[in-house]
């Protein structure tokens, strides 16, 4: 699956751009989500880089999100440019996605582990209620200081995520997320 984040305030233009990203694909089904993104299902891997490039030229961002891994599913359309953000959260999301793809702890989960990425104190997308299991990263006071949270989720049983650890240093992000997965898989 390939998720394209759409700024809802620029919806008509952005949806047109997302459509342009999808248009040349061989096989794809596209759906518009109320969370401000469109998902392209069954995209061919060979076509993915071109689609990502077209997203970038349209000034929207997108990411590949298939498989059992820990990834940013909220696809915040303002990630990286939102006021109050201390640093670009997409770097952390991509680091986590790459590390956990094909990771055995992720593979043994029934479904993928979802992680919203937010690097400011303002929860503008309601990430605390987002559907995520290990939710690792939220900026606290300064760069490289993260807050570990988990147990949030929407869907049929909504919960607000709770703080597990107030401060996790950025260079411990991978080990902390793996520790959460290990506890779940024990």
């Amino acid at each position: 699956m390939f998720r394209v984040a759409i700024p809802t305030a620029r919806c008509r233009r952005a949806i047109a751009a997302a459509g342009a990203c999808r248009a040349p694909l061989t096989i794809a089904a596209t759906g518009i989500s109320p969370r401000g993104r469109t998902s392209v299902h069954w995209i061919k891997l060979a076509e993915l880089p071109g689609c990502a490039g077209r997203s970038r030229r349209s000034r929207i961002h997108a990411m590949q999100t298939s498989g059992n891994n820990t990834r940013n599913v909220t696809s915040d359309q303002w990630a990286g440019v939102a006021p109050g953000e201390i640093e670009d959260p997409r770097i952390w999301s991509e680091l986590l996605r790459q590390y956990t793809t094909l990771h055995p702890e992720s593979r043994s989960c029934h479904a993928s582990s979802n992680s919203p990425s937010r690097r400011s104190d303002h929860d503008r997308r309601g990430d605390q209620g987002a559907r995520y299991r290990p939710a690792p990263a939220q900026e606290r006071a300064r760069r490289n200081r993260l807050r570990g949270a988990g147990g949030g989720g929407l869907g049929r049983t909504p919960f607000i995520g709770k703080t597990i650890k107030p401060f996790v240093h950025g260079h411990n992000l991978l080990s902390y997320v793996e520790a959460i997965l290990r506890v779940y898989n024990q």
């Binding site: 989960c109 029934h110 479904a111 582990s113 995520y132 299991r133 290990p134 988990g150 147990g151 949030g152 989720g153 049929r156 049983t157 919960f159 995520g161 709770k162 959460i180 779940y184």
Partner: peptide, 12 residues
């Protein structure tokens, strides 16, 4: 139960 296979359920 796949619908209960979530960390949110475990935390709860």
């Amino acid at each position: 139960n796949i619908y209960k296979a979530r960390i949110k359920i475990l935390v709860h």
